[in-house]
């Protein structure tokens, strides 16, 4: 899907959402979630192309796929958290959005723990 189609869809949903928000705010939030999910799914194919490109690049350079997988997971977590947090903010739940972001940050740190442990172990062995 081209960018102008996505912008068009977003503008239409925004206008409908603004009108709906005055009449039925709960439907406006649902419409916003639906539009967000549709745009994300439409871009999914392109995201896969980027991920494949990165994997090929790492593969050609003999770089460990373990690091790449972890960094890609971090990017995925941050996108999902951003998506959820923005929806919460749009619905007026700022506190909930902050909690989603906190959960994402903790999730990312948990992902990095194995690498931190491995490097610390190596450093301890190197400098006893």
């Amino acid at each position: 899907m081209e960018i102008w189609q996505i912008v068009g869809l977003a503008l239409i949903v925004t206008i409908i959402g603004v009108v709906l928000r005055k009449i039925q705010p709960e439907i406006a939030v649902q419409l916003s979630i639906l539009a967000g999910a549709v745009i994300f799914l439409l871009m999914f194919g392109k995201i896969k192309v980027i991920v494949d490109l990165l994997q090929n690049l790492a593969d050609q350079a003999n770089i460990s796929s373990y690091y790449l997988i972890i960094v890609l997971k971090i990017v995925g977590i941050s996108y999902l958290a951003e998506f959820g947090a923005q929806i919460c903010r749009d619905a007026g739940e700022g506190a909930l959005a902050t909690k989603v972001e906190l959960a994402a940050k903790i999730g990312v740190l948990v992902l990095a723990i194995p690498i931190i442990v491995a490097i610390l172990e190596s450093l301890v062995r190197l400098i006893p």
């Binding site: 980027i50 990165l54 690049l57 790492a58 770089i63 690091y67 790449l68 972890i70 960094v71 971090i74 990017v75 941050s78 996108y79 951003e82 972001e101 994402a104 940050k105 990312v108 740190l109 992902l111 990095a112 690498i115 931190i116 491995a118 490097i119």
Partner: peptide, 28 residues
């Protein structure tokens, strides 16, 4: 790869986390 990954991130608050992992990658 690190630069490309940073560009992919949705917000600036997560930048430090990717930098941490990529920094460990460079140390390794």
């Amino acid at each position: 790869l690190a630069t490309f990954m940073e560009m992919l991130l949705p917000n600036k608050s997560m930048r430090g986390y990717v930098q941490l992992v990529m920094g460990l990658f460079v140390i390794s």
